[in-house]
């Protein structure tokens, strides 16, 4: 469970990225966070991964305040979370297989486990045949699928997808959404930040609307309305 308790994030220069946010996201939910660029969607993700700390209030992840996590424990904490980005953020010098394997290597999985899990997850995202390709040899949609495989491979509690379809064509976008729904149906919590109206309307899942750092709506099966 992820909980925001009266969270504000003020950047230097008195710029408030988030103001008095109260949110509860239950395990297994699929939540779309919508809003224009600069509304504060990415800041919410950064607070969950402890890349940033709240200026006020508490972010609770699985009953533990994110603020209280020691710096040296952050890598372990982050292994509970799978991240997907608009620009994929794959490691360019590594093949698709190695990119996915990296998430397991850093967590200390054995070589046998890696050899078993990586092909499995690449098959799930439909990229089994592209395992030996480098990111530059793949299309945007394919790169995003690899990035999803990387986020998923160590069975995280939560997937944070920050504009995952921002750079993709409509068909690839829908494929990615189908994948996220599939992941969610297997029990993983999915948080999707997007400003793609069509996608959100089709999903028919919970929608949280953010504007100027404030929650302006929170609908159980909402549509993209701002």
């Amino acid at each position: 469970m992820i909980k925001f308790e009266n969270v504000s994030k003020i950047y230097p220069g008195n710029f408030a990225a988030l103001e008095n946010i109260d949110l509860v996201i239950e395990d297994g939910e699929f939540v779309s966070i919508v809003g224009q660029s600069g509304a504060g969607k990415s800041t919410i993700f950064k607070l969950i991964t402890a890349e940033e700390l709240p200026t006020e209030g508490e972010v609770i992840f699985n009953d533990k305040s994110v603020k209280s996590i020691k710096r040296r424990h952050l890598p372990y904490f982050r292994r509970n979370i799978g991240m997907i980005f608009q620009d994929f953020k794959l490691l360019p010098q590594k093949t698709a297989f190695e990119n996915v394997a990296y998430a397991l290597e850093v967590a200390g999985y054995t070589n046998e486990e890696i050899a078993e899990k990586v092909p499995e997850i690449l098959d799930i995202v439909g990229m089994g045949s592209k395992a030996e390709k480098y990111p530059r040899q793949l299309s945007g949609g394919e790169q995003q699928k690899i990035s999803i495989a990387r986020a998923l491979v160590h069975n995280p509690h939560v997937i944070l997808a920050d504009e995952p379809s921002g750079n993709l064509d409509p068909i690839s976008t829908w494929e990615i959404m189908q994948l996220l729904l599939k992941i969610n149906s297997l029990g993983t919590t999915v948080l999707l930040a997007t400003h793609n109206k069509e996608t959100v309307d089709k999903l028919r899942k919970r929608v949280i609307g953010i504007e100027n750092g404030k929650v302006i709506r929170d609908d159980k099966t909402g549509k993209y309305i701002i």
């Binding site: 991964t49 890349e51 040296r72 890598p75 372990y76 982050r78 292994r79 991240m83 953020k89 794959l90 490691l91 360019p92 990296y102 998430a103 850093v106 967590a107 990387r150 160590h154």
Partner: peptide, 16 residues
């Protein structure tokens, strides 16, 4: 430079 950010977010420790 940008790869470090990715590595960190994937859960790699600074030492790793």
């Amino acid at each position: 430079k940008q790869e470090f950010e990715v590595m960190r977010l994937v859960g790699a420790s600074n030492l790793y």
